[in-house]
């Protein structure tokens, strides 16, 4: 981590800031706060944030792309669930429409869908979603060489050192890494915990720990959060409460109750930006299409300032993002080996 002032760094590649938008209002907030790219999804099961009341109609996306382009920002469209067998049309139409609307890239996870996009829209820029969990050079080359995928969003399983080594091996394929937000502790796209408890999963339905299966039960002096009828956590009076995301619950194993998988915590790599930039990462992604405009504006501003500071050779400003992190806690996650 660099703390002392450094000279401006023309040697460093300026990473794109890729920011979430669940609604047109959030898209505007992100662009105005300094996003280079905004990523969005259609209002259906074709994307991994298929949350109630969220996402874009065709008309909204069309207008969103026009707005972003008018302000010099790109729009990336996530079509990153796995098409349901027998009904690929919904996913194919999403690919066709996004390409026709002039999306700057399609973010895909399913091999069959990547194949479809590459054949039907050879001009379209393809990104590999984190949901594809391509965690090594061999997997990344598979998507790059066979389908022309130009950028891979890395699963949140690698350390900064591993990312640097990976980048050296896969050039010119670009990498994008998550820098802030809700953290998956399992390899993304390879987790069926949610459907085990609720019948709905990220891969199939685009939802994890879906709200329809969530109950908060208020008891004397606290709240119990449940998912699919399973108790995920219990909070005392005044204790910060979290949404019952399955892998961030408190469970009993080996005779004791603990946050077995992960504490309710948010990824925050603000202090690590210099290392991630030096590792040769092309784009920094902020998680949170399901979060509100206020979140988007605050986080995008912070990371805009952070990235610009590193490129100017200045230290990363110490910005307080505590208020919008889960349970008020933060982690650098898998980027540091000790996390494992």
């Amino acid at each position: 981590m660099s703390t002392a002032a450094e000279p401006a760094r023309p040697d460093l590649v300026r990473p794109e800031l890729v920011c979430p938008a669940g609604t047109p209002a959030a898209l505007k907030s992100a662009v105005e706060a300094g996003a280079d790219c905004v990523y969005v999804g259609f209002r259906d099961e074709t994307n991994a944030r298929n949350f109630p009341g969220l996402n874009f109609s065709r008309k909204e996306l069309d207008e969103g792309i026009a707005f972003a382009h008018a302000h010099g920002a790109k729009v990336l469209v996530a079509i990153n669930t796995f098409p349901r067998a027998g009904q690929p049309e919904l996913w194919h139409r999403a690919v066709d429409d996004a390409a026709a609307m002039g999306a700057d890239a399609l973010i895909l996870a399913d091999i069959g869908l990547v194949d479809y996009a590459a054949r039907r829209h050879p001009q379209a820029r393809l990104h590999l979603s984190v949901q594809a969990a391509a965690s090594n050079p061999e997997a990344i080359r598979f998507y790059a060489e066979r389908f022309g995928v130009q950028r891979v969003v890395l699963p949140r399983v690698l350390t900064v050192q591993e990312i640097a080594a990976l980048n050296a091996k896969i050039r010119p394929v670009e990498t994008e890494v998550f820098v802030f937000g809700g953290l998956c502790v399992m390899a993304e796209g390879r987790c069926a915990l949610s459907s085990y408890a609720t019948g709905q999963s990220p891969n199939v339905n685009g939802v994890c720990s879906p709200a329809a299966h969530v109950r908060y039960v208020e008891q004397a002096g606290g709240i119990t959060s449940q998912l699919g009828g399973f108790t995920i956590n219990r909070f005392g009076p005044g204790e910060p409460a979290g949404y019952p995301t399955l892998c961030k619950g408190r469970f009993v194993a080996d005779g004791k109750a603990s946050y077995l998988f992960e504490e309710p915590t948010s990824l925050n790599t603000l202090g690590m930006l210099p290392d991630l930039i030096r590792a040769g990462v092309t784009a920094f992604k902020i998680e949170g299409r399901q979060r509100g405009r206020a979140y988007v504006a605050a986080v995008v501003q912070a990371f805009r300032a952070g990235v610009d500071a590193v490129l100017a050779g200045r230290p990363v400003p110490d910005l307080d993002l505590d208020r919008i992190t889960e349970g008020g806690r933060q982690t650098t996650g898998a980027y540091e080996k000790a996390w494992r």
Binding site: R215, A294, R323
Partner: peptide, 24 residues
């Protein structure tokens, strides 16, 4: 939209009961 709903809930300023999906 001046505050983040998740953040409010994380800090317990907001209480949600019943069908969480509708509120979300």
């Amino acid at each position: 939209g001046r505050v983040d709903g998740d953040a409010l809930f994380f800090s317990r300023q907001l209480v949600v009961e019943g069908d969480t999906e509708v509120v979300v």
